[in-house]
């Protein structure tokens, strides 16, 4: 239905939340790592929520991987999500947490179990199946979330400031993991980030959101070179 070269399209999407109103219109390239930036309260989370399906557009259409998902419930969208925290159910073990990503009713085939084990290996957490989230460090918990995204293997991966809670060294390591996965699967990554270095390190495409609107949307070189936006400049030099 949509254009195959665009993984994500927002056609005149509008939404009002309380006193703030949002309006998004964009075409984001498939197979790219797209950084979503902007000041706090600008609308980054709402943008992501609209993509994920937690917020419903009052007008306009949202297309993901060519499919019109405007009225679709989150689980039916071809996306995987990673939040900043609370990515795992605290009272379930790692195996179950990942397994739910494959099949919400937890009816797993042998192949499914295999893929869980191998996904944990890929993120460097081999043998962690029976562990409980509470016994893992923050970085390890995020890696489990990555493992789950791996087994789900959806065309689009949405991340909401996934590394903000981690220390700088870990942040770089996790970003590298993200890029590895991206290269291996060829998915489209949309990552909300507050860190300009991170953006410079991993992004192919950049979005800058201000006052509920996308004011800058460009490939990364152009994005980094833009001088005409005070907010963007401030962000890039922060």
């Amino acid at each position: 239905m949509g254009d195959p070269q665009f993984a994500i399209e927002m056609h005149d999407v509008g939404l009002q939340l309380g006193t703030q109103d949002f309006h998004f219109d964009c075409r984001l390239p498939a197979g790219a790592v797209i950084a979503v930036t902007g000041a706090s309260g600008a609308g980054k989370s709402t943008f992501l929520n609209l993509l994920a399906g937690f917020d419903t557009a009052a007008q306009g259409r949202v297309l993901i991987a060519g499919k019109d998902v405007t009225d679709e419930y989150p689980a039916r969208r071809p996306v995987s999500l990673i939040f900043q925290d609370n990515n795992l159910f605290a009272h379930l073990d790692i195996f179950t947490n990942i397994g739910l990503g494959i099949e919400p009713a937890m009816k797993l085939s042998t192949a499914d179990r295999q893929s869980i084990t191998s996904s944990l290996e890929k993120v460097g957490l081999a043998g962690f199946e029976q562990r409980m989230p509470g016994t893992l460090s923050g970085g390890e918990r995020q890696r489990v979330a990555f493992a789950r995204a791996l087994v789900r293997n959806r065309p689009v991966l949405l991340l909401d400031e996934p590394f903000a809670a981690l220390d700088p060294g870990l942040r770089i390591g996790m970003a590298a993991l993200l890029l590895d996965m991206h290269r291996e699967t060829g998915n489209t990554v949309v990552v909300v980030s507050h860190d300009p270095d991170e953006v410079k390190r991993i992004a192919d495409f950049g979005l800058f959101i201000e006052d509920g609107r996308i004011v800058v949307a460009a490939p990364i070189d152009e994005f980094l070179g833009r001088e005409d936006h005070a907010g963007l400049t401030q962000f890039l030099h922060s």
């Binding site: 399906g53 689980a75 039916r76 996306v79 995987s80 609370n86 159910f89 919400p104």
Partner: peptide, 8 residues
């Protein structure tokens, strides 16, 4: 949110 995104 987590449950919704996983379809549980």
């Amino acid at each position: 949110k987590l449950a919704a995104s996983l379809g549980v």
